[in-house]
Amino acid sequence: MHDDTHIGGAGSRFPQTRGSAIIAARSGDAETRNRGYAALVAGYWKPVYKYIRLKWHQSNEDAKDLTQGFFAQAMEKEFFQGYDPAKARFRTFLRTCLDGYIANENKAGKRLKRGGNAQIMGLDFENAEGEIRELQLSAGTVPEDFFERESLRSLFEVALARLKEACETAGKMQHYRIFERYDLREDEAEKITYDQLAAEFDLPVSQITNHLAYVRREFRRLVLEILRELTASDEEFRSEVREVLGVDPE
């Protein structure tokens, strides 16, 4: 699954729509519409790409083309106009559209460089490909569950990217680094105490906890902001928040 080239760059910036990107994508105003689409692409391109690789067993190159092609056609043919929040979650709707699109492409034997030709934004496929390799998927992975999980992963990655950017802008990189050290540590077994952090950053413990609280607060705000952008109604938003943040007690 890892034999070919990569296109695009590190363009993972998430365009902010200040509201629902789905509603923006259905706007009559071209600029708002483009911004809405760009936000949806940024939020979903990675799960879409990985899903195509897993479910449709496409090669890296074909999956890239199909990902680009899907979003290009969604924009051209206004796929998302037909979305009704009362019937399904947007994520489910998007996946259904994607399955339909790929089935059509396969049926017509149109494995063209359609998407590649219609590249709509720089997407870091190499990174996504690397993630697939790291995930070590088992034979029993259900593609639909995989898509859900990858959407969640993508959401948190985007939130983290935004968080870092926000901390940079606000001149609070030390806050971010404390958060990175404490909450983003890779090693589950590594136990870090506030005292250790205080010694490491040469700050009093109270400041460590305050900095951590600030970044966590920002992080929650950004997760909610992105969820707001990726949902079309208050009800869908609330239900998504419950699902995304509703984790079991430790």
Binding site: S12, N127, E157, L160, D183, E186, R216, F219, L245
Partner: peptide, 20 residues
């Protein structure tokens, strides 16, 4: 950026939900 592992994802979900 490194992809988020499943363990880290779980932790971040908890972190985002913790009361400040």
């Amino acid at each position: 950026m490194k992809p988020l592992s499943d363990g880290l994802l779980r932790r971040l979900r908890r972190v985002a939900d913790l009361p400040d």
